[in-house]
Design a protein around this nucleic acid. Structure first.
Lengths: 333, 333
DNA sequence: AGAGTTTATGTGAGCGCTTTCATCTGTTCG
DNA sequence: CGAACAGATGAAAGCGCTCACATAAACTCT
């Protein structure tokens, strides 16, 4: 049995109330008493039991970060960078991050009362999910997918504009036949990217060709190298933009496989500008977005909600910016 | 105010004790009563308050995963893959993962009573840390760095043997002048790697040359490309093994920068075989280890400790295995 | 100096739950 | 048919903490 507030109180010759006051920095304790209490606390190595505190204060001190199941997302730097941002965002608070991986664990968390709020990584939110989320009755911030009538604030990159920038960048380099490798349209991100691609094509007066688009089942291109290879063989595109850096890395590999050299034969642009992108060979042209900032923002919104503040912006969109690196160049004559 | 066990009890016309019994699957509740209680629970959408339960049961239901501060580690696939393993390991239990980033947050977690056990990612454990860890008095499993007299079980890859395998692989390809790019020797991992390198050189009857070794300040080679470039320019090595895949990616970039082509002019081997390694261009030869397994094992050990079981193996070492890919070949004549 | 005010401290209830113990009912069996 | 027992249920204590309230002590001001 570890030392409790009672033990400290007894040892210091005061009531538990006074100890509690010192602990939570509340006023109403004499200088001398406070000093003595602090000494006893340190000397006895006393640590407050958060569960008990939570019980009376009606909060847990935890916020859940829930991510879709599967090693893919965990390994995805998009996720880890945003998570890092979240961590930084709550660093100065008393909150802890409770990780939750959907499927089994989501239930655990959400079917019990163990968090005060939730940050949800969601590629997409369906009606059904939305309903059950509402039922939870906790502050929720969504990262990634804005849903029209969602009551939950959302923070996400401006994918649509990002992809548009990528298309435009290729156009300005002289490309006229620009392909697009997308993730599954079941994800909002893919939908936004596709919109960006289509719109910008339109803006530039380029033809939209179905065969220039490859839609993969997953964002993890490692499984799709073959598909991408085939895609490249059949197309006469000179540049391709990808809905994520992961996809772009897969594209590089596939292109190499079919004997295309980059960027001479094919220009490739990624999206999200994950840290390693600038770093692989050849370094990847991509569309940068402040992932760390997204995490921080999500955290700060949730924190505000937890404080009961009214959230003005239901949707915070982070601007993206094209970064030119070594996978892009003007097309060969 | 949300619905509590009392509300359920009242609604079902029983005592809270019975509801509690049903909840925790304890015997002693009649068939009919149980059914009624379950219905009421569902109908009222009742969820037990874990904090309150923890209070009486003297546990929190959380285990902490503490990682060193800094985006690097978070972005490191080594970490995320192991974390995934941990998550899988506790998936079937009632435990939740509380993330903790050292510096600020470690304190939060450890200076309060909010977890039952800890999984600690530690590049190295110093005397001082060891002492304070002991004081915590919680079950702790360390990932990464075994310390001689540590009372805590440790699970880690067999870096020493892994690097040795890499050196040997290069040797068998015909390399006789084999370099080594290491992380900071402040980390046990680096020390083990260095040992493996040195020993294997010795085994093979190769000369150990100080100038063939580059020791970087960080494991994040993105910042060290220059250093690596310089290193390559000055050396006449034909092959180099790196203490991690990240370092290897940096080495590829650096080599390219100084005009070395891979693997013709220089063979490169990584370590840890992180998912993306097989995937970059050229695909990276590396030393594979079951990172997911490491995570699972760490979780299962901690779970055992939490159950009060005696841990037999204070140290679990995962075998590594060299994987030959595209960054290695026989040296040019 | 006495009423009023501030400041320091203690008391005790109660947060939502589990668990021990007592009670009550119905069975079994000699 | 009554003792003995097993199973179902409830009453109540208490986990460690906070907080509203009561009390006591020390000032302030006219």
């Amino acid at each position: 049995m570890s030392v409790s507030i009672k033990d400290v109180a007894r040892e210091a010759g005061v009531s538990t109330a006074s100890v509690s006051r010192v602990l939570s920095g509340k006023p109403g304790v004499g200088k001398a008493t406070e000093k003595r209490i602090r000494e006893v606390i340190k000397q006895m190595d006393y640590r407050p039991n958060l569960g008990a505190r939570g019980l009376v204060q009606q909060k847990t001190g935890n916020i859940a970060v829930v991510v879709p199941r599967g090693s893919f997302i965990l390994n995805n730097p998009f996720f880890s960078t945003v998570l890092d941002g979240i961590a930084q965002g709550i660093d100065q608070t008393d909150y802890n991050i409770l990780m939750s991986f959907t499927s089994t664990q989501q239930k655990k968390l959400l079917e019990k009362k163990s968090v005060d709020g939730i940050i949800l990584f969601a590629p997409r939110i369906e009606e059904l999910t939305l309903e059950s989320l509402k039922k939870i009755g906790l502050p929720i911030v969504v990262i990634g997918s804005y849903v029209e009538d969602s009551p939950f604030p959302c923070v996400r990159p401006d994918d649509e504009d990002g992809i548009a920038q990528a298309v435009q960048a290729l156009y300005q380099l002289g490309h006229r036949n620009i392909g697009f490798i997308n993730g599954p349209l079941s994800s909002m991100h893919s939908i936004n990217c596709l919109n960006g691609y289509t719109k910008e094509l339109n803006n530039l007066g380029l033809d939209y060709l179905d065969e220039n688009i490859l839609e993969l089942d997953e964002f993890d291109a490692s499984k799709a190298t073959n598909e991408i290879s085939t895609f490249f063989k059949e197309q006469k595109i000179t540049g391709v933009v990808c809905a994520s850096d992961y996809l772009a890395v897969g594209a590089i590999k596939a292109a190499t496989t079919v004997g295309l050299s980059i960027p001479e034969d094919l220009s490739i642009v990624g999206a999200d500008d994950v840290p390693i992108s600038s770093f692989i060979t050849p370094s990847l042209s991509s569309v940068h977005v402040d992932l760390l900032g997204i995490g921080k923002k999500a955290a700060s919104i949730l924190l505000d909600m937890l404080l009961g503040k009214q959230i003005e912006n239901k949707e915070v969109v982070f601007k993206m910016k094209y970064i030119n690196r070594a996978t892009t160049s003007s097309p060969k004559e």
